[in-house]
Amino acid sequence: MTRTVLVTGATSGIGFAFCEAYSKKNYQIILVARSQERLQSLSKQLTKNYGVQTFFFAKDLSKEGAAFELFQEIKAAKLKVDILINNAGFSNTGLFTSLPLEKIQQEMTLNIVSLTKLTHLFLDEMKQQHSGTIINLASIASFYPAPYESVYAATKAYVLSFSEALQYEYQEFGIRVLAVCPGYTKTSFFDGRKLPYTRARNPEMVVATTLKSLKTKKISVIDGFGNQLQFLLSRLLPRKLMLKLTGDSGKKAWADG
């Protein structure tokens, strides 16, 4: 029986790398993103390259109510989701009060609210079937505050804590929940943005780390040796000193007064 994976933020970067990886495993792919045209194009590309069946839903998950609309549309299409990958996310950078409240609300809705709602809706079905996998994209920023990217780091701290708790709650139902924590990755997420430093991994590396970790008992995974060292540093240094290091880096890159 063919299994199905749903990927949000599926048209580029880590999201599309997940689509390709699971296409190679002969999964049906449900692509979710904002652009109907881009979804249609990449859906055809996956079918042509890997011979898999694809479905796509154009949905802006930064809008209130979009997550439940997506769930209803997927149910109406009579699709069963075996793996949910909550990949979609974005960040605002700069001095907190320089950012429009509307943009901050969209960031929180996408990174936290829609992720939580989709997890709740699909997890309940997985529980009934005693089977399923949920992969939530957190970040290396989950582990410490990030001045000038303060809301983003806070939302990703939520994703990490939320995912680890669910792994414990639902392991007895045969469900696997994993939080993935990439660092800077070569994706459109950073288009038009100045990076604090140039070191970056690529999306395929993040996906490979994820698939390998799913075979273990890990509840979360940090992608890349450099990011693992950064996490270790955050545990060894006093929190105030770590805040200064991340703050100085963020201020240099993103402070706008």
Results as ranks from 00 to 15, higher is better:
A76C: 06
K127N: 07
L70E: 10
V81R: 01
D60A: 03
M126F: 04
G65W: 11
L70D: 01
I112M: 14
T133C: 13
F143N: 07
S62N: 03
L79V: 05
A76K: 15
V113F: 08
N92C: 15
S139T: 06
L123D: 05
A58S: 15
S114R: 07
Y144L: 15
I85C: 01
E73P: 00
I83C: 05
L61S: 03
D60H: 02
L79I: 12
V113W: 06
Q128T: 10
I140C: 02
D60G: 02
S150I: 14
F122D: 02
Y148K: 09
K63F: 11
Q129S: 11
L123Q: 09
T133V: 15
L95I: 01
L84Y: 00
A88M: 04
E102N: 12
K80G: 07
V81H: 00
E149F: 11
K75Y: 06
S114D: 05
K63D: 11
K80I: 12
E107W: 07
I140Y: 01
A67F: 03
G65C: 08
L70A: 06
P145T: 13
L95Q: 07
S150E: 13
I83L: 14
F68E: 14
N92V: 13
A66S: 15
V113C: 03
N111K: 08
G89F: 06
P147Y: 08
N111I: 08
P100V: 12
G132K: 01
S131D: 13
L84W: 04
K80T: 11
A76F: 07
Q128N: 11
E107K: 09
L101G: 13
T109N: 13
S142K: 12
N111M: 03
I83T: 14
E64T: 04
N87K: 06
G65A: 08
T97I: 14
S62R: 01
L137S: 03
K103L: 15
G94F: 10
Q128Y: 05
M108V: 15
I135F: 05
S139Q: 08
K117G: 06
H120M: 14
A67T: 11
N86E: 05
E102F: 10
E69V: 06
K59H: 12
D82K: 00
K80W: 06
A76H: 12
H120L: 15
F143E: 01
L61A: 08
L115G: 00
L110F: 04
F90I: 10
L123R: 04
A67M: 07
T116M: 08
A141L: 14
P147Q: 07
L110Q: 00
H120A: 15
L84P: 03
Q128W: 04
K117Q: 15
A67S: 13
Q129Y: 03
T116Y: 05
M126T: 00
K78N: 13
I104C: 04
T119H: 01
S91V: 12
T133S: 11
G65V: 08
K80M: 11
A58K: 07
P145G: 11
F122W: 13
S114F: 02
A88H: 02
L95W: 03
G94R: 10
A58E: 10
P145Y: 05
L99Q: 09
L61C: 05
K78G: 03
S131E: 14
F71Q: 08
S114Q: 02
L61T: 04
L79T: 00
G65Y: 07
F68K: 13
L84M: 08
L101D: 14
I140K: 02
E69F: 04
S91P: 07
F96Y: 14
I74T: 05
T93I: 13
K59V: 08
H130T: 10
